[in-house]
Design a protein around this nucleic acid. Sequence first.
DNA 1: GCCGTTCCGATGCGCTTGCATCGGAACCTA
DNA 2: TAGGTTCCGATGCAAGCGCATCGGAACGGC
Lengths: 195, 195
Amino acid sequence: MDHDSRRRQIARAVFDLISERGMEGATLRDTAARAGVSMGAVQRCFSTKEQMVAFVMEYMNQRITDRVQAEIPDTANPATAMTTLEHTLAATLALDQPSRAETRVWLAFTAQAAIDPALAAVQSEEYAGLAKLIALLISAAQTHGHAHPDLDPDQEAEALITLTDGLNIQLLLGRHTPGSARTALHHRLNGLRIN
Amino acid sequence: MDHDSRRRQIARAVFDLISERGMEGATLRDTAARAGVSMGAVQRCFSTKEQMVAFVMEYMNQRITDRVQAEIPDTANPATAMTTLEHTLAATLALDQPSRAETRVWLAFTAQAAIDPALAAVQSEEYAGLAKLIALLISAAQTHGHAHPDLDPDQEAEALITLTDGLNIQLLLGRHTPGSARTALHHRLNGLRIN
DNA sequence: GCCGTTCCGATGCGCTTGCATCGGAACCTA
DNA sequence: TAGGTTCCGATGCAAGCGCATCGGAACGGC
């Protein structure tokens, strides 16, 4: 088997373990067992557990990014910027089972980042990229008269990301249903819309 | 020393350890050392580590509740309900060093609650209590013409709590400063205000 | 076809963990 | 003050951890 694909295979196993049992559930032995390989294989792919965890964080970020990008149409259509914006933000929410798993992992890494500045820096970069994308969609909506023109796209993007973070926590705790979260997001976006 | 006060003393030690090193930093040995007692004392106060952690969660919730309650004036003054509302919500934010520590612990427990329904149920109750208080303040503001009358206090309370959760994450990751978080909260509350 | 290199599964090691055990100090009751 | 109970500090123990080690399998160049 290819080296990189094995790394991804192992990362997937770690991802599942963290999603089910939290950060402490990601031991080398359980990871190897879940991935269907031996411990030696894991140690060959990642020289240390810390490196493995760091790789899994990138893997998680990639999965989230992929899910978000899937909502962006190939041909940029400014006429539907607001709809694209809503779908993009919804893509970051824990609305179904796979995204719930991702969000649990995200929360575990976020808690880790809160006590590890190195992880915080990485996640901050990730947020910055998402914020840039959201701000771009807001700008597009503004130039076509679908969003209030006197809003700062960057500031509004930050606010929307803050909203989705809060919604995700409430979703994981069961205080929001997928439906109510969607409604809350839609209601919040009404504050941007013109018509 | 009194039994209950020793439990609180130990809980405080666990609290600090979790705040600094996360959930995994709360070992029995380190807890005992930090609290200045022996391991035997810890084991006498809490028959198992799981019970100890559960007690620490209550301890954390109590600290947050205390901080919030301190913002509620003794004599309910409906004329300043909106101000009280803003101060109350600000009390849940990680704006200074002590509240940052509390919020790190809160995030650690929230991540745990995401994979443990029992913890999620407890935290859900805690949220419900806070939401009730927020909704009450909104209602008071409405009856005195300081808040838009056609808003659902309960729904708005949920939205505000969701906002503070998101702000806290951004604060811990360093993507919000205390000042920008205060501004974001104030700006959000402008949506409720009448004058 | 043989050897050198690369890879990997298995095992061992040192360490830490939560928990059980036990001897003695401290304190209350009579 | 003697005896009994309560408490606690120290130590032991089994399990699990990350990591190092090593023998053998698989593969490629000459």
